[in-house]
């Protein structure tokens, strides 16, 4: 540190690093994960089978590895990004009322969408992740990816909630990308910043389309047909596995429990 200023707490002294990490964590892994997540989800538009393929591919790393990946690359970074984000929000006083410039409105929206995203993600986790199945949440079953998701998303309030949440996340990511470019000094001149605004806007809108169309994709799923397809696949898989291994595979047991 410089000779200026007192030696504050750890957080104060390392404020710069922490904020840079915060900025970075928003892009990778959190932002990158979100893009992948929405891409995978939107494959529902192709067909329930392809979507199920994609989900299976993710789960093929095995449940332990998957949990490690989830925690290290998703939950912890999101938690860090969210908690420190709240600290940042607490440190500013939005003034969109007085200064109604576009970038200032985006500044305020960035904070608002951050908070929305925070609650949305928490709810989304509870709603879909198998950890919360015992508590009445955790509706998603990876072996019944299309049907369970479609059922979970079928009610109107849930649809609205998801639409708002997904849009907030998309804005937050796209605008975050734009501010990041300034924070890290990628786009410096007013011209470059203007171009970056366009690029980020296109990216954000694209992402939002992806997310919303995935939702509409789940809405269009023929649940009966999907369940049939999933059931056949599970049988087929069991059959294949049954030929190679003992039927009472502990792995499958865990899977079934948690998926149940």
């Amino acid at each position: 540190m410089t000779d200026t200023g007192p030696q504050g707490s750890f957080l104060v002294r390392h404020d710069f690093l922490i904020r840079r990490l915060h900025s970075l964590s928003g892009l990778v892994p959190v932002g990158a994960y979100m893009v992948v997540h929405l891409l995978v989800n939107s494959s529902i538009l192709a067909s329930t089978t392809i979507f199920q393929d994609n989900v299976d591919r993710i789960h093929s790393v095995g449940p332990v590895a998957l949990q490690v990946i989830e925690w290290v690359f998703i939950f912890i970074p999101i938690l860090f990004h969210a908690v420190f984000g709240v600290v940042i929000i607490a440190g500013g006083v939005p003034n969109t009322g007085e200064y109604r410039y576009g970038s200032n409105i985006r500044y305020t929206l960035q904070r608002a969408t951050g908070i929305i995203a925070f609650f949305f993600i928490a709810w989304h986790l509870w709603h879909m992740h198998h950890y919360f199945a015992p508590l009445g949440g955790g509706n998603f079953q990876h072996q019944h990816a299309s049907s369970s998701a479609a059922i979970a998303l079928s009610s109107l309030p849930v649809k609205i909630g998801y639409a708002v949440g997904v849009l907030a996340c998309c804005f937050h990511l796209a605008n975050g990308l734009w501010t990041m470019g300034i924070t890290w000094g990628v786009w410096t001149s007013p011209r470059a910043q203007k171009h970056a605004t366009t690029v980020c806007a296109v990216f954000g809108i694209g992402l939002a389309c992806l997310g919303l169309s995935a939702m509409s994709g789940f809405g269009d799923v023929d649940i009966k047909a999907a369940e049939e397809m999933e059931r056949l696949r599970i049988q087929e898989k069991k059959y294949i596995e049954g030929k190679e291994e003992r039927p009472t595979n502990s792995r499958r047991g865990v899977d079934r429990d948690s998926g149940g």
């Binding site: 404020d15 904020r19 840079r20 440190g91 970038s103 200032n104 500044y107 305020t108 960035q110």
Partner: peptide, 8 residues
């Protein structure tokens, strides 16, 4: 790092 890029 405190700057939030509001650009006001």
């Amino acid at each position: 790092q405190m700057c939030g890029n509001a650009q006001n």
